[in-house]
Structure formats: C-alpha cells, structure tokens
Nucleic acid binder design. Structure first.
Lengths: 222, 222
DNA sequence: TCCACTTTCGTACACTGTACTGTAGCGTCT
DNA sequence: AGACGCTACAGTACAGTGTACGAAAGTGGA
C-alpha cells in the first residue's frame, strides 16, 4: 500500500536522522529510561533490528542525542562583545538543558564528541579568543562558565518538578518531618526562600552568571 | 560450618550497610553499569533475592550510594571563617566526586536525600549563615558554589582518563583528524594547553573556585 | 536473465530487576 | 513440652533489555 515493500533498495524508509529525532522525542517524553531499542522501533513504526542498519549500537544513539542537544544551543558569534555573547550562550544552554534534562547525565560518559558539539565549542572559543583572552585565559574562562552552566542544570534537574509554582506544595510535606529541629538552617531556607509562592530556582541562574561574567576579564598582566 | 545456617534468626549475616558498602566498591571498580543485583549478590557471597530483605529495590541502593558519597565530603564547621571553610569543602567535594564519578550522573535523578546528605547541607548552610550571609544570600551562594563544583566534576568525569600524564597521548590521535583547519581554535587550545605534558585539568578547579569565593561576600546593602 | 547490493526483519541468547512463594532456624508464650 | 510466629535467606519464574547472526525481499545494472 503506502510505503515501500519489506526489504527493498532504492528509497529507504528510515534514516539515521529520523532514528535520532524519534529517540529525542522519546527521551523528552519519558526520560532516558523510556528509550529502549524496542520502544524506539515501535514509535518509528519499524522493527527493533532495523535500527541497527543506521546505528552501530545504542551507545551511538546516545552520542547522537547529545550532539542534537548541543545543536540546539545558540552559537555565539565571534567578533562581537564577548560578554554579551557568553551571556546569551549561557542562558540558551540552560534553557536547552532544562528541556532535555536527561542529557546532563549523558555528558558524564560520552567519549566521542559529535560535529555539532565541535562546531559549538569552536565558535565559543573563537569568541573568547577574539575578545582578547589569551589561550590560557580562554581555557580557564570556558571551564568556569561551562562548569557553572552544567552544574546549575544538574541541580535544576534534581528538583522535584521545577515547573513554576508547585515548588511550595512539593516541599511542604517533606519539611514536616523536620519539625524536630534537627535541621534548623535547612528549615529556615526552605520556608523563607524555597517555599515562597513566587520562588523559582531558575531565576537564580542569572545571579551566578553575572557574578562570573563580572569577574572574568581578558588580558592584563599576571 | 562457618557462618550461621540457611534461614536463621539471631545474628544476621548481611546488613544494609554491608550491601551498600559492597555496592560502592563495585561501582568504583567498574562504573555504575557494573553494579547489578546479581553481581552485587555474588560479590557479597549471597544470592540475589537475599538483598531484597534489606533494600526495597535497586533505586534504594542508588539512593544509599549517593548518601555514602556525601558522607565522604568533609563537613564545614560553622563559626569559623566561612571562606576557608567553603574552600575546604569545595576541594573535598571535587576530590570525592573524582573518586566516584558515577555518582554525578546519579544526582540528576535522585528524589529522596539521605541523612548524611541532609547533615552535610545543614552544616554548609550553618557556616554561611553564621558567616554573615542573609537567607537569600545563602541560597544564592550555595547554589553558585555547588553548581560550579558539580559542573566541574561532570566535565572532569567526561575526560578520557584524567589520571596524570596520559592527557597528551589520548588527545593526539583525535587531533590529527582536525588537521583540515576546520577547527583552528580547538586545535590551538588543544595543542597549546591541553596537550602540554604537565597539563592537568584538575588544577583549573582552584582558579574558578577562588574567583567565585573572591566575588562572594555577605551582607552589605542591595 | 541473473547477479549483487541495499534495506529490512525473525529468531535466539545472555542478561537485567523483581514478584511470589517456600523454608530453616530461633525466641517466646502458654 | 508444644505450638506458633517471626526473622533471614533463597529458588523459581517472568517480562523486559541490547544485540549477534543470518535470512529474505526488492531494486538496479550487466
């Protein structure tokens, strides 16, 4: 009927891109645990073993996912004001990692960086170098900025839901168990900050970012 | 002969602590993927299903592991100089996470913090508060510091080996593929910084940490 | 017509976490 | 003394995982 026949040459039905795209959707919908070869094949409308024609193994799918995620982060443009570029990049990266929280844990074990990942790093390095940073300063600044971004995303991902207002409702029952007074400072920060109705942890990102950007500066003698 | 009989009351052979301890060793030895219920049972010298008397499910084991890791981080002491205490804590945390890199990815999905984790957070909060930070300042400072620590550990874990000198040897073959000139700045930083024989990424941790500690300060008007 | 190549898939295997059930030995109570 | 129950451990079985191996169906070219 519709598609091509069972095992045919000519126009293939699948493609590596289609596989990775669907894998991304599955991971976004149900976390990385929901991404199995079988569930992926089914959601594509094919059979498990068919995927292995486009992908060597699951690890390669995960590599591809990480590269897809990096591709979503807005690329800085060298030549412009480095500080503003880094600010844009940082906010974009945080937002992307909030949409794909499962990607953070994947970073720990990835070995082979994809082309989009390399392109992104190259553009960021270029912006810093052409902004006046020496090679060594660039390495340190980049490490500092990315550490902060990844770490913040990691903490944000660990939060119960992180979607607007439910913060207070989620934290309340947990806090009741601390009425014993064992953890006074935890209770203090929970009640006076975290559980405030309009509190959103995501807003704290800007504070740390600005503090870092303010302290960073190119050149000058050692 | 030696141990107690098969299914006896009285002195039990296993314990929750023993299970978690062995699980930690297994994870350290072969990564989190090497930690299966069956491999864990075998390394303890018991049978898979016996573990479930002390632990509800594998998730609870992972929760316990994270708590064990937190317990290894040196606890700051309130009342002393907050900056020095935070410095000690940060370096300790990084060192612990370098020994247990699999724990970083676990942080993303943990829901229930263990008692050691809570104790650690309480002590850190106490140090900042008694160091003169307001509640809001404490929240922000803590978020900033931990983001940097976790993020740095995450990046360090993603590195090929990170064990002294092999940095240059590992990076060299990868870099050869970039002789095309597609990624000039990546090549520059790789050859002039990362692949230098005495370069150790871990040393960069102190730079970012000091920059952050320098910029942090309690009180003062807004 | 026939071959070779591309693309898809069926079967099978070793492995995972764990629900359910069984049972051996001990302490306690009557 | 006898019975009970509770603690600690384990056997079996099941649905799920990634994937090695090989078969097969269709297309394009000779």
């Amino acid at each position: 009927m519709t598609g091509a026949a069972k095992g045919a040459a000519g126009r293939p039905e699948l493609s590596r891109g289609k596989v990775l795209q669907k894998a991304l959707e599955l991971a976004d919908a149900g976390g990385i645990a929901a991404l199995s070869i079988r569930s992926l094949a089914q959601s594509i409308g094919t059979k498990p073993m068919s995927l292995y024609y486009y992908v060597a193994n699951k690890e390669e799918i995960l590599d591809g996912l990480v590269d897809l995620v990096f591709a979503e982060i807005s690329t800085p443009q060298a030549g412009s004001e480095w500080k503003e570029q880094m600010r844009r990049r940082a906010h974009s990266a945080r937002e992307v990692l909030r949409r794909h929280p499962w990607a953070i844990g994947l970073l720990e074990s990835r070995k082979a960086p994809g082309p989009e990942t390399l392109k992104h790093h190259e553009a960021t390095l270029a912006t810093l170098r052409e902004g006046g940073f020496t090679v060594e300063q660039t390495a340190r600044a980049y490490s500092l900025l990315d550490s902060y971004i990844y770490g913040f995303a990691l903490q944000e991902a660990g939060l119960p839901i992180s979607g607007g207002e439910p913060m207070a409702q989620v934290a309340a029952p947990i806090m009741e168990r601390f009425a014993t007074g064992e953890y006074p400072y935890l209770v203090e920060i929970a009640t006076q900050v975290v559980m405030q109705p309009d509190y959103d942890y995501g807003n704290e990102f800007g504070y740390g970012l600005e503090l870092i950007l303010e302290a960073l500066q190119p050149a000058s003698a050692a």
